[in-house]
């Protein structure tokens, strides 16, 4: 990230704080839609919206994991294990 040449051919990655803000927003919409769909499982429009949100969430969390470390243990590999344990824990309140 500190090497200016590394970013020349790549679009700018949003800051950790900004990316996490989007993850919070889309993640919350998903949480709320899941409860709605539990009691309205045949609502076609709601299902389409849920899938749209789910796709956005997958893209955001993938971008986050690539740049700032894994959000789930299943996304831990040799290169980022340290960031799984070393990153501030969510209750520490950095984002």
């Amino acid at each position: 990230m500190n090497n200016p040449n590394m970013n020349m051919n790549r679009p700018q990655v949003p800051s950790r704080c900004l990316l996490m803000k989007s993850i919070y927003e889309i993640g919350f919409s998903l949480d709320d839609m899941i409860l709605y769909l539990d009691t309205h499982p045949k609502d076609r429009e709601a299902l389409d919206y849920y899938h749209k949100l789910h796709k956005q969430y997958h893209e955001l969390t993938k971008l986050y994991t690539m740049n700032y470390g894994p959000l789930w243990a299943k996304d831990v590999h040799n290169d980022n294990y340290f960031s799984w344990v070393n990153r501030p824990m969510p209750w520490e309140g950095d984002v």
Binding site: M20, I23, Y24, G27, F28, D31, P70, L71, W72, A73, K74, W84, R87, M89, P90, W91, G93, D94, V95
Partner: peptide, 14 residues
């Protein structure tokens, strides 16, 4: 259950 390493809504108290 799987742990997702973030809160559901942010908590930042100074």
């Amino acid at each position: 259950w799987q742990y997702e390493k973030r809160l559901q809504y942010p908590v930042n108290i100074t």
